Amino acid sequence: MLDTDELLAAAGRLCAVAERPAPLSLRQLAGGKNNRVFAVATAGGPALILKSYHADPRDPRDRLFAEWSFLAYVWDRGVRAVPEPLAQERESHTALYTLVPGEKLDAGDITSDHIAQAARFICAANGAPREPDRLQPGSEACFSLADHVATVDRRVARLATLDPDAPHRERAETLVRTGLAPAWAKVRETIRAASDTATLPTAAQCISPSDFGFHNALVDGSGRVSFIDFEYAGRDDPAKLVCDFFCCPEIPVPLRHRGAFIDSLAEGLGLDAAFRLRCDLLLDAYRIKWACIILNDFLPMDAARRDFANPGARDARCAAQLDKAVAKLAEIGLR
């Protein structure tokens, strides 16, 4: 992990490449779960953002490559509701971006206009020339129902062996054994009964931010929504995007907006009835997947990544994540 002097030096090299004023200081921003994010004060210019990406040989995901590729793709299409990618340095796992103004939304403040802006962003990101093959598949991308099932299977299987040193491990093991695993067995059979073995054609795929929701959004004083954090982005099933959007627990999106969001994507991306059917069929599967994600703090590698972004406080994190996982599983069956 780079220390403060090394990060400031990396910021200096990146600012030089981007032809921006030299950095004066760094201030770490709160909220990063996998990476460290810093506001960069510059000599006579606007503040910028430096991201230091977590890298681990046990985790093959290249978060810097995914985020940079997505931002370059959508920026080329005139999308401006995102940070501008300025410079990257593969060796130090760092990149420089413009700073997007705004504040996080509270769940109770989400309006139909915010939902409409989110849908327009996805449609604009997939605007002409629409070339989904230009991006690699996103993290855990799914191109068939079997892919969706396999993704959740892997998530559930990982929870079979928890970190023995994790706080509240016994309670987590009980929840997995008596709640999460049986729920997945039932939902899994419902999906398998659909007997749809088709592979999603390229025309029905989309460029997806992945991990898409208002937890990765900022709203400025005029109500304009901007979107951030695309380290899992890539080509994917738009139905997965919809399910993630309504299942992510950090800033939950009320289900009453689901129909309008699906309608907007179907119209904007030219998607057929099969897309709507997948959105309905997969919703509970993604509730279970998100319950698994919530419990990642009980896995050694994921706990190490959290500590990279925000050292300490694992006991409190684990206790809070258990409560969130219970709440997410309680949503199963809601429409």
Results as ranks from 00 to 15, higher is better:
residue 144 S to G: 11
residue 146 A to P: 10
residue 148 H to Q: 05
residue 151 T to Y: 11
residue 154 R to P: 15
residue 157 A to Y: 13
residue 159 L to K: 01
residue 160 A to V: 14
residue 161 T to Y: 06
residue 161 T to A: 15
residue 162 L to G: 01
residue 165 D to K: 07
residue 170 E to C: 06
residue 174 T to H: 10
residue 174 T to Q: 11
residue 175 L to V: 02
residue 182 P to L: 03
residue 187 V to T: 05
residue 188 R to A: 09
residue 192 R to M: 12
residue 195 S to R: 14
residue 196 D to G: 02
residue 197 T to S: 14
residue 197 T to R: 12
residue 197 T to I: 15
residue 198 A to N: 11
residue 200 L to T: 01
residue 200 L to G: 02
residue 205 Q to L: 08
residue 210 S to L: 02
residue 211 D to L: 12
residue 212 F to M: 10
residue 213 G to F: 00
residue 214 F to I: 12
residue 215 H to V: 08
residue 216 N to W: 08
residue 217 A to N: 07
residue 218 L to H: 09
residue 219 V to M: 03
residue 223 G to N: 09
residue 223 G to V: 09
residue 225 V to N: 10
residue 226 S to E: 05
residue 231 E to Q: 05
residue 235 R to K: 07
residue 237 D to Q: 02
residue 239 A to Y: 01
residue 239 A to H: 06
residue 240 K to E: 10
residue 246 F to V: 14
residue 248 C to N: 14
residue 249 P to D: 05
residue 249 P to G: 04
residue 251 I to H: 12
residue 253 V to M: 13
residue 253 V to F: 09
residue 256 R to C: 11
residue 260 A to H: 14
residue 260 A to N: 13
residue 262 I to P: 07
residue 266 A to W: 02
residue 269 L to V: 00
residue 272 D to G: 04
residue 275 F to S: 14
residue 277 L to G: 08
residue 278 R to Y: 09
residue 278 R to S: 10
residue 282 L to D: 04
residue 282 L to Q: 06
residue 285 A to L: 09
